[in-house]
Nucleic acid binder design. Structure first.
Lengths: 154, 154
DNA sequence: ATTTATGCAAATCGTTTGCAAACCT
DNA sequence: AGGTTTGCAAACGATTTGCATAAAT
């Protein structure tokens, strides 16, 4: 419940909250998992596994995959599947404190975060969810992404 | 150029247009490729390769992959990569005549099409593209998808 | 001491590709 | 014939998993 209530919780708060969430899934907050969370807290864009390993070569690839899966299951991280070769991971919105969308580069696969004005966000959500419900589809979330070329790939 | 100019071209038109597009990429419109296009014209939702093979068991799996790749390159079909195990393919918007979005079922992976009112569409696009350009990102397209449970999986 | 996480190597599985036969034109 | 597409089987590569060791409590 405390998670995400403050738009930008103190650094320590995040770890405490992650530990709590993991507990609800019967998992503990190990050093490796903490490394991953710490990494994502300080990253301004979703990371692929190779990028994670680049920054933490001491971690075993399989453990990174496995721990990100655990963190995903606990609702701590979000897995982003683009057309790119690798999936990417970022802290769930409850932990970053702000709902956002993505600028996906179709050239290099990088992903940047952007936010939409609440008014715009509201209009889209209302419209989409209305349509969905009318067809018996139960909405759980949405993704609004822009595809294009990032500054580096123009 | 003619493609998509008519909101809903006659059935025959589509095949003629596809042939033309393939020609621009130096490819011919073979029977197998025609089967694929015909299938998508009559499908109300993006299809995965297993679904294609189910409906056309006489096709070789590798050829389906290969031909869908060719059609994608020619701008005839669009590849949709969800978190699901299989990628899905649908006719490009220039051929369906209408811009649309997706209702993605996170349970079974099925994808339905939905359209947004032009006014809503315009607001989102303007806002997103404005943000993107301000960051040196060159927009090429966008995807607005709703994630949830479809009527069958509720 | 028992349970859980880790790291290595091997397995999985959707997708891609090499190559020879079948098809055009 | 000359070039292209097809189908089979083998290769690829991101992700997952089995199993033995290392932590942790």
């Amino acid at each position: 419940m405390a998670a995400g209530t403050s738009p930008d919780s103190a650094p320590g708060e995040v770890h405490a909250e992650v530990a709590a969430r993991l507990a609800t899934v019967g998992q503990s907050y190990t050093a490796n998992r903490s490394s991953l969370v710490e990494l994502m807290v300080h990253s301004d864009q979703p990371l692929s596994i190779p990028e994670v390993l680049e920054r933490h070569p001491e971690l075993a690839q399989s453990s990174v995959y496995r721990n990100l899966a655990v963190l995903e299951e606990a609702g701590v991280v979000l897995r982003i599947v683009t057309g790119d070769e690798f999936a990417r991971f970022e802290l769930a919105e409850a932990f970053t404190g702000h709902h956002h969308h993505h600028l996906i580069c179709s050239q290099c696969g990088s992903v940047e975060d952007v936010t939409l004005p609440p008014s715009v966000e509201a209009i889209v959500v209302r419209e989409l969810e209305g349509q969905a419900r009318r067809r018996g589809f139960e909405p759980r979330g949405h993704q609004v992404d822009l595809i294009g070329h990032c500054a580096d790939c123009r």
